[in-house]
Design a protein around this nucleic acid. Structure first.
Lengths: 194, 194
DNA sequence: CGCTCAATTGAGCAATCGCTCAACAAAGTC
DNA sequence: GACTTTGTTGAGCGATTGCTCAATTGAGCG
């Protein structure tokens, strides 16, 4: 309701959109969810964003923040610590919403060009940061990873795959089992570690 | 338009639903897509199915047929042949629609109980058939797979993960690269093979 | 033929969606 | 204070969805 400069309003809307997609998912979230989160009229959103563009931007922001929090922002710490935390927290309840966003971005990307681009870019960023971590651990002697670039693709794939399996309600694969499988896969890629 | 016994009509509708979800995906498919595929009035579908139930049944049927075609139905062949074909065809263009169904079933399962149940059951069937194949190759001496049950979970996970990465339009991971990564992951699980 | 009842029709209901637009309100400018 | 610009409102449009239901058709049967 307060009157804001355009840039500030854009920021507020983007943040509200991030909260909304984390709560309801990319597919179920609506423009009205975002505007009612802000306590603002429905028409205001279209003045600043296309829904497709806002949704893609919110996705990019949320994923980027998570990569930063879990990998990129921990350059100073020991690679083995960062990787171990990554494995331990991968399938926690709090991570569910993020995995859901990945799945939905992949699917919606098939009919939404902006989301496809965002998903592609986010995948690149993820691969880059993870392979950077693996390379760092390799040169630090924390583990043996002959090809960080390739290994990170496989680790990302098994992360996504296990996450999808865990997300299914009444899943035959428990969170603990998924973490176990991830740990073994990481061991396959990084020799003895994690 | 022809008048049919209830059971036959149910079968025709189910088959049309399978064609429809393969063509448009689980989320984009509508009841009208199915009835117009059959050249039948829109109201007829609701006389035999709930959309949620029909969609879940069509998903189960499609996935079941694929598992049968690629694994269960090839019990007579050498396990290494079956596994090699599995790897080679995993990320072919024709497989895209099936992987899309998996992704969508996971996501829609979060708000559709019938689809969640179908996805959970399909996952079980898949895990069971793949771990059976791995065990068969193990006892035949085709490879060394100490725990087929666990290995099949990891292989399923990396299959799903790589498939999702390939599905993204403009994906940073090509089909060939995905096949390569899958081959290496399978090698990790089954010793020297595939 | 006449009757019954299941199969089938298709207009349309109620809800939901992103987005439009005329109207209004508050700065900013001179 | 007059005027322009920009932020904001909210009713509502047009399209889409699964599903309803009164009406119609036609096969089976005595």
């Amino acid at each position: 309701m307060p009157r804001l400069k355009g840039a500030d309003r854009r920021t507020l809307i983007l943040e509200a959109a991030e909260r909304t997609i984390l709560r309801k998912g990319l597919a179920a979230a609506t423009t009205r969810d975002v505007t009612s989160d802000l306590g603002v009229a429905a028409g205001l959103l279209a003045h600043y964003f296309t829904w497709s563009a806002l949704r893609a931007a919110a996705f990019s922001h949320v994923i980027g923040a998570d990569i930063e929090r879990s990998v990129t922002g921990r350059m100073g710490e020991a690679p083995e610590t960062v990787l171990a935390d990554l494995v331990d927290g991968a399938f926690s309840v709090e991570a569910d919403a993020l995995w859901r966003l990945w799945l939905e971005a992949t699917e919606l990307g098939l009919s939404d060009a902006l989301l496809a681009e965002a998903a592609s870019a986010a995948t690149d960023r993820w691969h880059e940061s993870l392979s950077g971590l693996l390379a760092r651990g390799q040169s630090a002697g924390a583990w043996t990873c002959p090809s960080p670039d390739e290994s990170s693709w496989r680790i990302i794939a098994i992360l996504l795959g296990l996450a999808g399996l865990c997300l299914i309600p009444g899943s035959p694969l428990s969170r603990d089992a998924a973490t176990h499988h991830l740990r073994i896969a990481v061991r396959h890629e990084c020799g003895t570690s994690a």
